[in-house]
Write a protein that binds this DNA or RNA. Structure first.
Lengths: 283, 283
DNA sequence: GTTCCGCATGAATCGATAG
DNA sequence: ACTATCGATTCATGCGGAA
């Protein structure tokens, strides 16, 4: 079986199943993986539609390869959300986190993507689902993180908040976080930019022409700035409509994208080619 | 060992370990449980500092009692967030969810409490933690949920959108894509309220007099309105500073609170007594 | 160049009905 | 009893064209 591959100035796109293509990538050659794999039983048209009960089993071999190709100081961001099955939230995402840890991954953080424009609907037992998980896994406790790259303008809330910290607040915070508090407060005084939190407020893009993106460009862009530098390599093994590659390219990172669906693959190539010409023209 | 108990007009407060007190409550006598149990803490030993590795084991017998006292159509809201241990998010909350399901609970939903003003701080490997889980468990697939009680004002897009209806607005407008999701805009005319999502935006309270609350009054209040009616009974087995009982009382629900710490217990009694007198005076 | 406004779109879920 | 399909429900956003 041949593998289709398109080489572009800043990266390469593969058409095919990532289970077959990932093994051809060299060890530790990637600095960041950002991906949104097909959710269980969703996107049946373009992917197989993995049964929730078989999800972990399906994903683990892929994760093993991802671990091999990831740099020792790199990060793996997994955007995922469990669906409701039979009135309950299914547990495959929880099981997956536990299984990935057994595989050797460190579950470093769970970012919360608040979807400002979530899917509509009404049901008797739940409200609209307006958040997804962005699970952050690493290979080591020490990894590259460039926090200054994602700082945000300070809101006036900070002044108010910091003025009113009570003794008990301080104690409670100590009990949760385990580290010095006072000196951290001092760090805040006089700043016009602050570090963000682990909650990301972003709307999905819903008016793309002819293709649907799993997440807005802003999402991979945020993680790419946070965890990589220029010329680092970003991998997305479930490239979909190509958002991750596009974000990487805009930020002058190299990218590797893998997409199984032929339509999506062609679309990615076209989009990134166009961008490329545009990019070169601008230069 | 005696149990201290304070009876108030709308509820009762127990001083002691809920593991000892819960068995004295009758079966299915509670309509809603809202609680924020002590966070895991590897440094302290007492209740209020259970070791992360022992958390599930510690909580399960309590959950079993909670299940017994909960009405068949009732809900259990567990506000919890795992802490970071050794650079990683600990997995005890995930394990707890799985264990509670094995115990017979249905994991119906996971609400996300976005803490609009989270504590400041800086770490090399993570940002400030600005969200907590509010896990929703039930005994049955069918349970009481009064969604109208928590509706919120519609976004300001509505005025413009609904001013003039086009032809397609009057009929069901099928989606062009394969989402299968059409809409009938005419249904929206006259609506000024919409149902909320499963993301709750609430600030933590930082101005409590002499004590710190695990969550703002608004949080239990929201779940109490959503899952109970007047005169229903709300239980918090880890009452802390009494926020849940206070919320229940304000909403004319009965309450049962259990608190082990003597200082907190006294404080609760005083606060709820004061409220009571105030309440009576106003009447 | 700005602002305004119309509008299709979206990782959804439940309950009923049919095989 | 268990699975597959179908209809009903719902809301905030960014895009693009117009003013």
């Amino acid at each position: 079986m041949t593998t289709k591959k398109t080489e572009l100035a800043r990266g390469e796109l593969y058409e095919g199943d990532c289970r077959r293509i990932l093994p051809s990538l060299p060890d530790e050659s990637v600095h960041l993986i950002v991906t949104s794999p097909p959710y269980a039983d969703r996107r049946r048209r373009s992917y197989g539609g993995i049964h929730p009960d078989e999800y972990v089993e399906w994903f683990l071999p892929i994760a093993e390869e991802l671990r091999r190709v990831l740099n020792e100081r790199g990060s793996f961001i997994l955007n995922i959300k469990e669906l409701a099955v039979n009135g309950e939230r299914h547990t495959y995402v929880l099981e997956l986190i536990l299984a990935l840890r057994r595989q050797g991954w460190l579950w470093t953080e769970e970012y919360c993507w608040h979807k400002k424009n979530c899917y509509p609907g009404k049901w008797p037992n739940r409200f609209r689902d307006a958040w997804e998980r962005c699970l952050h896994f690493t290979k080591r406790r020490q990894f590259n993180m460039y926090q200054e790259e994602v700082m945000v303008p300070v809101g006036d809330w900070a002044d108010r908040r910091l003025g009113k910290l009570t003794e008990t607040d301080r104690v409670r915070d100590e009990s949760r976080s385990d580290s010095g508090f006072g000196k951290r407060v001092a760090n805040w005084v006089g700043r016009d930019k602050v570090y963000p939190t682990n909650v990301l407020h972003m709307a999905t893009e819903c008016t793309n022409k002819g293709h649907s993106a799993a997440f807005p460009l802003e999402l991979p862009s945020w993680f790419i700035r946070l965890f990589t530098r220029s010329d680092d390599t970003v991998l997305d093994p479930f490239l979909g409509s190509g958002t991750t590659a596009q974000a990487a390219k805009q930020l002058d990172r190299r990218f590797i994208g893998i997409e199984q669906n032929e339509e999506y693959y062609k679309l990615c190539v076209e989009r990134l080619k166009d961008d490329e010409q545009l990019h070169l023209k601008i230069r």
